[in-house]
C-alpha cells in the first residue's frame, strides 16, 4: 500500500533522513522502530509532506506522492495522528471530530464506531480540548483520524506518557481500527509495538537498518538490544 524508497530529508541544514526505505503491506500494522532521534517522526512527516524529501520516492497505492502538499496527501486517504496529542485545544471534542470530516456526514457515519472505541469521548463531547486530560486528548487525536475514510493511518507515539489503563484502551482501539485501515505505527514502547504489529522497520541515524516480521524480531534479542536498547 505504501512504498518509501531511499528518502532523504533535510530540516534546515541538518540531513535528518539519509536513506529510509520501508514497505507497508495493505491491511497490516507495521511498526517503525528506533531510538530517540533516529528519524521515525521525520519519516512520518516526510510521508505527509510536512518536511518534503529532497531525494527518493514515496508511492501510495501506486501513485507517487513525494512533494505533494500535505493537504493533498491527506485528501488521498492518509490520516496522521501526530505525537504530543495534537488536538485543537480551543475547539470542543465535537468540533475537533467534525473538523476531520472529509465529506459531509462522515462524523455521523462513524459516531458509533468512535464512541464504542472511546466511550469517554461521548461524555466529554461538549468540552473544549484544553479541558481534557492527556489520555483523553490522545484518544481524541486517534478518534479524529477515524472520522474520514482513511485507508492508511500514520500514528506517532500514541502511548507516550500515558497511564497503563489508557494505553490498554488505545492498543485495543488501534487493533480494532486496523481491521479496516492499514497502519504505520511509530512506537517507543517495544511491548506495545510487539503486541500490535505484524511487521517492523528499524531506523538508525536516518537510515533503514533492518525490517521483517515482528514475530522474528521478538526472538532476536541481539537486534532489540542493539537498535532499540530494550532487553
Amino acid at each position: 500500500m505504501l512504498e518509501v524508497r531511499d528518502i532523504h530529508t533535510y530540516i534546515g541544514q541538518f540531513h535528518v533522513l539519509e536513506g529510509v526505505s520501508l514497505s507497508v503491506p495493505k491491511g497490516s500494522i507495521t511498526a517503525l522502530l528506533g531510538r530517540n532521534g533516529a528519524g521515525k517522526t521525520t519519516t512520518l512527516k516526510t510521508i505527509m509532506g510536512i518536511t518534503p524529501p529532497t531525494q527518493g520516492e514515496i508511492v501510495y497505492d501506486g501513485q507517487p506522492i513525494g512533494g505533494l502538499p500535505s493537504f493533498e496527501i491527506a485528501q488521498l486517504g492518509i490520516g496522521f495522528v501526530p505525537e504530543h496529542r495534537a488536538i485543537f485545544r480551543d475547539l470542543t471534542v465535537r468540533e475537533n471530530l467534525r473538523l476531520a470530516e472529509r465529506n459531509r456526514g462522515d462524523f455521523e457515519r462513524k459516531e458509533d464506531l468512535i464512541f464504542n472505541l472511546f466511550p469517554d469521548l461521548k461524555r466529554l463531547i461538549r468540552l473544549r480540548g484544553t479541558n481534557l486530560s492527556g489520555g483523553q486528548q490522545q484518544m481524541l487525536s486517534v478518534a479524529r483520524a477515524l472520522v474520514p475514510d482513511n485507508r492508511l493511518l500514520l500514528i506517532d507515539e500514541p502511548t507516550e506518557g500515558l497511564a497503563p489503563v489508557i494505553i490498554e484502551q488505545l492498543i485495543e482501539a488501534i487493533r480494532q481500527l486496523s481491521a479496516e485501515t492499514t497502519v504505520l505505527l511509530v512506537e517507543q514502547n517495544f511491548l506495545v509495538a510487539q503486541t500490535l504489529a505484524e511487521y517492523y522497520v528499524i531506523v538508525e541515524e536516518g537510515q533503514t537498518v533492518k525490517h521483517g516480521m515482528m514475530a522474528d524480531l521478538a526472538e532476536d534479542e541481539e537486534t532489540i538490544h542493539r537498535y532499540l536498547g530494550a532487553a
Binding site: 510536512i50 500535505s70 493537504f71 491527506a74 480551543d90 468540533e95 473538523l99 479524529r144 474520514p148
Partner: peptide, 24 residues
C-alpha cells in the same frame, strides 16, 4: 460555521489543519 472552525484550527496549528486535508 465549518469554515470558521477551520480558521480557528489554522490559528492554533496550521500544519495540523493541513494534515487534516485543508488547503489553508
Amino acid at each position: 460555521s465549518p469554515t470558521g472552525r477551520v480558521c480557528i484550527a489554522i490559528r492554533e496549528n496550521e500544519d495540523r489543519a493541513l494534515m487534516l486535508g485543508y488547503n489553508t
